[in-house]
Amino acid sequence: MPFVHLKQLDKHYESDADCVIALDKLELAIEEGCFLGVMGPSGSGKSTLLSILGGLCHPTSGKVLVDDIDLYGLNSEKRADFRREYLGFVFQSFNLIPYLTALENVMLPLAVKKMPGAEKKQRAVEVLGRVGLSHRIGHLPNQLSGGEQERVAIARALVNEPPLILADEPTGSLDIATSREIMDLFKQLNQEGQTIIMVTHNDEIRPYFDRTVVLRDGAIDSDSARTPKAVPQAG
């Protein structure tokens, strides 16, 4: 059974004049431990897909099953609980809280969890160590470089030990060298068993993915899972 299953997913944005189809009868099954890249030109529906996957945006019709939980069958508060337990978000523009230190930003998902304060701190310090930021835990976001902020954002996504990480253009605002470091970090996490779904239009990071889905006009244009890598022909 796939870990994430999208069934007949439709999303229309209706404005006064017309109706924009963002997703069109999308079917997608993602196995646990997969590092999936979702690519496609802007307007292809990949951001919408991520929002829906993240339980932030109701699809017009269709179902999202994660670990066999029907995400949009839950009410809004339960969906918030789901996000906390199952998902780690890494946003394009890091989205750190400016008035909280790196450590506090990482602890944010734990703030509404019942857990002793010392354990929260210990877990946050530990994940900050994993992303290589042990030395900057007391700094505010504006005292950190772009790469460091990204690492804080990744640590924040990991702190809850979620089964699924959703990343939106995590390299969008980084230089090439830093992008490579960050992608190496994601790859390493994936190799440790972490399921990751990443939206990007940066073709250079494509080699990091186990599987790449390309969207066009809200539907799957190509899926590397269905076109197995070319196997060298014998003789």
Binding site: L56, A80, V112
Partner: peptide
């Protein structure tokens, strides 16, 4: 961001 990180409305 808080909501995305799993904060409830309450």
């Amino acid at each position: 961001i808080f909501r995305a990180l799993g904060f409830r409305r309450s």
